[in-house]
Simulated assay, not measured.
Amino acid sequence: MARTVSEWIGKTDDHRAPPRVRQRIFDDCGGKCHICGVVIVGKKWALDHLTALINGGENRQSNLKPVHITCHAVKTAADVAEKAKVAKVRGKHIGAIRPKQSIKSAPKPEKPAPKPMPPRRSLFKEISAS
């Protein structure tokens, strides 16, 4: 019977998993890339965080899976794009990011044409010679 081993948890986000933990994770996943499902044989591989650290994931064994280097680059780019979108939406929501354009109001109605002036009356009465 195999002895149970406690889960590895990194001291910091930058702390790398030691070789014994990398081997344990690789064996638990059957040596397959968790993204494409192809067996990793004689190729370089990395450990990928299922939930990226920048998106709130933890640096622990249960959040790590083996992945090909090329698959890892694609997933990392997607994680960064997701983080940027979340940050932008949150910034707009809390008012930290102002809109690029001002909100346009409804067009003002046109003013009606002025009424024509009545004909001018003379100030003096004309006297007719009769």
Rank of each mutant, 00 (worst) to 15 (best):
P18C: 05
P18W: 09
P19Q: 15
R20N: 13
V21S: 01
R22D: 00
Q23H: 08
R24Q: 01
R24D: 00
I25T: 03
F26E: 05
D27C: 04
D28S: 13
D28G: 04
C29F: 10
G30R: 03
G31M: 04
K32P: 00
K32Q: 10
C33R: 07
H34T: 11
I35A: 13
I35Q: 13
I35R: 08
C36V: 10
G37D: 08
G37V: 01
V38A: 12
V39C: 02
I40F: 05
V41G: 05
G42D: 15
G42C: 02
G42H: 04
K43M: 10
K43R: 15
W45L: 06
W45G: 05
L47E: 03
L47Y: 01
D48Q: 13
L50T: 14
I54T: 11
I54N: 08
I54H: 02
N55A: 00
N55G: 01
G57H: 00
E58A: 11
N59C: 02
R60P: 01
R60I: 03
S62T: 09
S62M: 04
N63Q: 06
L64I: 09
K65V: 15
K65C: 13
T70Q: 11
C71S: 05
H72G: 03
K75T: 07
A77E: 00
A78L: 10
D79P: 02
D79C: 04
E82D: 13
K83P: 00
K85Y: 05
V89N: 02
R90H: 09
G91M: 02
K92T: 01
K92L: 09
H93T: 12
H93S: 13
A96E: 06
K100V: 11
Q101V: 09
I103A: 11
K104A: 04
K104T: 11
K104C: 01
K104Q: 12
S105E: 13
S105V: 09
A106F: 12
A106K: 14
P107W: 02
P107M: 03
K108V: 10
K108R: 11
E110K: 14
E110G: 08
E110T: 08
A113G: 06
A113D: 11
P114M: 06
P114E: 10
P114A: 14
K115E: 11
P116H: 05
P118V: 14
R121W: 10
S122R: 11
L123G: 15
K125E: 15
K125M: 10
K125G: 08
A129K: 09
A129G: 07
S130R: 08
S130E: 08
